[in-house]
Amino acid sequence: MTTLRLTDLEKRFGGVVASEDVNMTVPAGRITGLIGPNGAGKTTIVNMITGMLPVTGGTIHVGDTDITHAPAHEICRAGLARTFQNIRLLGETSVIDNVLIGFHRHKSSSLLSALLGLPAAGRETRALRDRAMALLDRFDLARFADYPAGGLSYGHQRKVEMARAMAAAPDFILLDEPIAGMNDVESEGLAQIFRGFAEDGKGVLLIEHNVRFVARLCSHIYVLDGGRLISEGTPDHVLNDPGVIAAYLGDAHA
């Protein structure tokens, strides 16, 4: 079974250690959680996985592909898609075009036919539009297809971002604090969508601050503090771990 695997991952800024000895496995068909108090180093891990930060030690694999030092755009080609902590849509662009961009990695027409606007390129665009509409339908967004994405409500924008990530047909999806700023109803809707991803056989890595939300969705949880994993296991196990409780309480008192 394919996995997203971090092995002895390490990040140093000069002499300062930002993360160390991070070993994680995200299996396909499951939702895996990564939690930790503020400043635990979650963002550093996300940036290393997604190619935004150079890795200083250890490896990252998607299946058999080593993406440790791959540039950001090749990571998507290896089968890992992501969403952003602060929703990042192309605000000037219509909803459907935002989703169309997600299809970029599956190219069928040649550069020349795309440049010259040959029929092959036209057919490709039409076929992709149909698939994009199907995706929007699945996320209940079809009626907004032609609106500028920047004008949608926060919850709808988050769903457009999910649809865009799905358009890349990834094997794994990394969700960076997806329910920040959502109300309970919206969060519940997203939880359904995440379960759907897992049921489709995709591996989901859910990075969240909200412990209860993660506990409800994930089969396996990793807890990060001070750049190191301090606990891992089932939600029950992790939430009763004295080390985890101390880390979160320390955070609350700080």
């Binding site: 940036n47 935004m52 150079p54």
Partner: peptide
Amino acid sequence: EDAGNLRGRR
């Protein structure tokens, strides 16, 4: 200052 936003590994 860095010359722009050379984010990540390119």
